[in-house]
Design a protein around this nucleic acid. Structure first.
Lengths: 261, 261
DNA sequence: CGGCGTATGTGATGCCGCTCACATAGCCGC
DNA sequence: GCGGCTATGTGAGCGGCATCACATACGCCG
């Protein structure tokens, strides 16, 4: 069995298709490697291609006019990316960068489209995949609106723990090399602010910092920072945050106003 | 032909399915009306149902802990919404509100899932629909990161003109009744700031304001506001426009050199 | 091992935009 | 019309955070 085939099988999208279909897919797909920091696709380079990440880490970015880099998502092995480009011809202004040395399987757009139309399981899988991404990004959107930098960063750390966390000695380590600049690109802040806030978190015993490494020691303060789902009546009345009946135990500390000591 | 059937046919998703399939869909769907301001579905109310808006306007919202309302999207007649809830069982914390008196067709989740699995055209349509929404929301995310309130509002106005614009005597009128509070909920700002900025736009001759009404007289300044005319091409010290020859990944000087002059 | 470039840390300064506290104006039901 | 509601307008005050300008630490590579 070829290496490429093995990686394709690892992608949950293709786990239920027949062996010969998989072999055929492997024949028409291409295998490419990218060193750390290189571009996998460009905005103009609207190659009609979807990718499956085999090894490494990839980030999907976007450059604004003033040169600031927004990071839309991180991709980890087994995930597909660039799949929207094969569905419609909308101008893609995002690009993908290998955060670490990565290898990807490139699937031509027509092949993927044929699979979608002929194989219901693939079709449903793609739909769910795109839907999951949409949910994730909607969640991120909500986490950015109306929230302070500190809350955004807390939210981001929780997301990173959930998506890329790996157990460490004293907590959960985030398994992606991320500079403060990268983190700022995700939450729409600046490098300096992120440095400052992470320092605060460390002083408060919430995280332990290393070079391009973050270990979350205690995620409970981060959760309270954001405000756990509290049911609020739809009226415009003042949301007095008590009346927390049910299974979510949380202490209603100061919701928004945050002052560092 | 029943009224409901007519509205279902108007939904692009079902325009290509056979007449008897459509009739069957009409039988299992339900027809419901909602007065202005009423809730169509709640967060807890995880009814396994997708909706097609027949008449009126609907907004998809989300309440944060401090009572602020984020608006995720506006839905117009013929569009489907709530479709993600039928694909996975992720906890939905958003809710839908009728901005105007609305009538919707409710499609049970199992029916929609069966249609997705058995009818490729519906499946592909759903996938494209969700993908389009994802693109839209990714675009909005980027329009919020790193941008001032004024830029966000400019971006929002352009989006509204594009999606809900109708020609007026002296410009394009936004065809949805929106309070400044609503606008603030979309761009993550406050009611007062929106009032202020809209006043500025009016003084500059960009828009004309009425009660819950906005007419965009000239969208060019709005485009400039965002940064469309400043074609970023390699004029600055931005190394992104590096030539990439063919398949060989180019050597990474540095992932993305962020430099501000 | 010494040099260079990136990653991180820290302070001063200024302004955008949120908060709070009002005033005014249309709309609607009775 | 009258009272109440929602939508809009306006100002004072200030806090968060972006910006700028540095210093330091760590890693890579000759």
């Amino acid at each position: 069995m070829s290496e490429r085939l093995w990686y394709l099988k690892r992608c949950s999208l293709f786990e239920r298709i027949s062996a010969d279909e998989l072999a055929r897919l492997e024949q028409v797909s291409r295998w490419r490697k990218f060193p750390r920091g290189s571009m996998i696709y460009f905005p103009e380079n609207a190659a009609d291609t979807a990718f499956v990440l085999a090894t490494g880490r990839v980030k999907l970015c976007d450059l604004s006019v003033d040169g600031k880099e927004s990071i839309l998502a991180f991709i980890e092995p087994g995930e597909m990316f660039g799949e929207l480009a094969v569905l419609d011809q909308s101008p893609q202004d995002e690009f993908a960068t290998a955060v670490e040395a990565s290898s990807v399987v490139a699937i031509p757009g027509d092949v993927l489209r044929r699979m979608i139309e002929s194989m219901p399981s693939v079709s449903l899988g793609i739909t769910k995949l795109i839907g999951m991404r949409r949910r994730r990004i909607e969640r991120r959107l909500k986490s950015l609106l109306f929230r302070s930098n500190r809350q955004r960063l807390a939210h981001l750390l929780l997301d990173l723990v959930e998506q890329h966390g790996r157990p460490a000695a004293d907590g959960v380590e985030i398994g992606v090399k991320l500079s403060h600049q990268d983190l700022a690109g995700v939450i729409g802040s600046t490098r300096e602010s992120v440095t400052l806030l992470l320092g605060e978190f460390q002083n408060e015993g919430i995280v332990r910092l290393g070079r391009q490494k973050i270990v979350v020691l205690d995620d409970e303060p981060l959760r309270t920072e954001i405000g756990l789902p509290t049911k609020i009546k739809a009226s415009s009345a003042e949301p007095v945050a008590e009346e927390n009946k049910g299974d979510t135990p949380w202490r209603p500390r100061y919701p928004v106003a945050r002052k560092r000591s």
